[in-house]
Amino acid sequence: MASARRHPAALALATCLMLSLSLSLVFFYAPLEAQEGFLQKIFYLHVPLAIITLCGFVVGGLMGIQHLRTRDDRWDLRSYVAIHMSLIFGVAALITGSIWAKGSWGHWWVWNEPTLVSFLIIMLLYATYQPLRFAIEDRERQARYASVFAITAGAFVPMNFIAVRLTPSYVHPRVLSSSSNLPASMGLTFVVSLIAMTLLFITLWQYEIRAKQARFALRALRARMDAAEGLSARPGSERSWVTGAGATEGPPPKQPAAEALST
């Protein structure tokens, strides 16, 4: 991970190679499934997306624990970006899952399927993460409350799966228990797809963190420049890195915003 942080381009290149390899395997190596035919290929996209989403939520919770333990704002940033990325991956998993369900079961949504339902509940819960975060103005409290949410929701993910899985299941394949029954060629393609999706997640996570850090640095430089020129600081330059795009009203900042966030 440390080397990936120093060489983001190498990580991006490895991700591109793995994604190309996994798509090649999906389309040219893995055999056509007997019942579903070509439609089954979406399995290699949908299942890794869903697994990475859930792992991202849990990892976001672990980073929240780390933030509350160390009070280091970088852990809050990492947790925020992990949850943000997982939400995007989760929406993609829901869409691909719906397409698969329509093709294979004839319905866009199937209620008697615990895996789908529990995934939707988790997405609904995490959809409140950003509204909660942005509704708190104080920077320090915002980070603390977001971490508490990340921990609670991260623990809720496995519990929710247990609760929903207790209800009788009818149609959804048990991926983690049934993947061992896959033919070797399908299993290999699935594992490569999972690795490629993990790399994609890590790469995007790294780049978003870098983008946010660059934005803080720019704000700090602007604030310093304004102070040096004796100008009144621009409204909004004190904004915290997650309080949204709107300019804040009120008195000019007393100190550069970026000093509050040790990046």
Binding site: I122, L125, T128, A135, F156, N160
Partner: peptide, 19 residues
């Protein structure tokens, strides 16, 4: 202690209470 507490309370509580 958020700006939109009347909205956020039910939004947070409902998914958490589904089990």
């Amino acid at each position: 202690r958020t700006r939109a507490r009347d909205l956020l309370g039910p939004l947070l509580a409902l998914p958490l209470l589904i089990p």
